[in-house]
């Protein structure tokens, strides 16, 4: 009887170990759905392991190798109901064109399957881009080994949509003690499933208007570009990205409910203090802000009348983004001696 008990006890321990010790941690699907609009990445790049291998041995009849880059859309753009595709290009650089020929020279991202994260695809789209490389004739290499750093660069257009609930108080200086449904307060956000995020909305209520200071930050690991300048990323192109092309985000729309706000200051305009609904803002040290105003109409007050109310504030940003992946490799010429 004691023997049987011991065996049962041992089997129990084994079962527990098997069940808990090596169990894969699976996320709660509900939580994953909530996380669709979070994350600080848009398009991410990585070299497929062994494509190319760390060391490539070149012989007179073996001069080719393949570079494969895995591209993932880890963000929330384009939305599931948006028919648009990711617009942009993938380039390979860092090698000497006189020695290595790469085909194709670049690749259109819209030719790849890169849907955003969605309820049916919680991880987002993923595809592989292949480049075929050929080392030029061995005599021209003139060295036993060549150690280039392959740099894959994706320059693409992306969008961020951020929504937060804000409190609109038409009588912030009211002397009568009355219960309000909400109090004006600052809102802190983390990320919105995109490399550029709205991180803070500071609100100030005045008697005739409500003012919002919206802070935007590059939360990704790449560089922000003007969305119409992404073609300048071509490493062998004729025009280069300049300081005027980077760290600029286009504010397409900031609205409280259905009402679009007037904001300032914008760059690349003649009068930077002029209030307008859209324009570019500059990020300094990866962060930039814009101030927007919701004017109170004299007769009607705000949309919620003369009492405080909660309403969504929506921010839509458009920008170009540059993501990079690197791989150091060694091209070795096999000695023919």
């Amino acid at each position: 009887m004691i023997k049987l008990k011991k065996i049962i006890f041992a089997l129990l321990i084994i079962s527990i170990l098997l069940a808990s010790g090596c169990k894969k941690t699976q996320k709660d699907p509900k939580k994953q759905l909530e996380e669709l609009k979070t994350g600080a990445e848009g398009i991410s790049l990585s070299f497929v392991p062994d494509f190319p291998p760390d060391t490539i041995h070149i012989e007179p009849n073996v001069k080719n190798f393949e570079a494969m880059i895995e591209i993932k859309n880890k963000g929330a753009y384009p939305a599931a109901d948006d028919p648009r595709k990711i617009e942009g290009k993938l380039y390979l650089s860092g090698y000497d064109k006189n020695l290595v020929e790469m085909a194709p020279e670049n690749l259109d991202l819209n030719s790849l399957l890169l849907p955003s994260k969605s309820p049916v695809n919680l991880q987002g789209g993923s595809d592989v881009a292949a480049f075929k490389a050929e080392v030029q004739n061995l005599d021209s290499l003139n060295v036993e080994k060549y150690e280039p750093v392959l740099m894959a660069t994706a320059c693409y257009k992306y969008e961020t949509t951020a929504t937060a609930s804000v409190c609109i108080d038409p009588n912030p200086y009211s002397t009568i003690k009355e219960k309000k449904v909400c109090q004006v307060h600052d809102v802190t956000l983390s990320s919105q499933g995109a490399p550029v995020a709205v991180v803070k909305i500071e609100e100030a209520a005045f008697s005739a208007k409500t003012q919002f200071k919206v802070t935007i930050r590059n939360v990704g690991t790449g560089d922000v570009l003007k969305d119409d300048q992404i073609d300048k990323c071509n490493p062998f192109g004729t025009s280069r990205l300049g300081r005027e092309d980077v760290d600029k985000v286009y504010i397409e729309r900031i609205a409280v409910g259905q009402q679009e706000l007037q904001c300032w200051p914008f760059v690349d305009v003649t009068d930077s203090s002029a209030k307008q609904q859209s324009g570019f803002i500059r990020l300094v040290n990866n962060e930039g802000s814009v101030i927007c105003e919701l004017e109170k109409k004299d007769q009607e007050g705000y949309a919620g009348g003369n009492t405080a109310y909660i309403t969504p504030l929506t921010v839509r940003l458009k920008y170009g983004y540059k993501a990079i992946a690197e791989k150091k490799l060694q091209i070795k010429v096999v000695s023919q001696k």
């Binding site: 650089s93 860092g94 090698y95 000497d96 064109k97 006189n98 020695l99 290499l141 003139n142 060295v143 080994k145 060549y146 150690e147 280039p148 750093v149 490493p235 062998f236 192109g237 004729t238 025009s239 280069r240």
Partner: peptide
């Protein structure tokens, strides 16, 4: 080398 090129590595002997 054209000024418009990006930086790249090249062998030197």
């Amino acid at each position: 080398i054209p000024k418009s090129y990006d930086a790249y590595t090249s062998p030197l002997k």
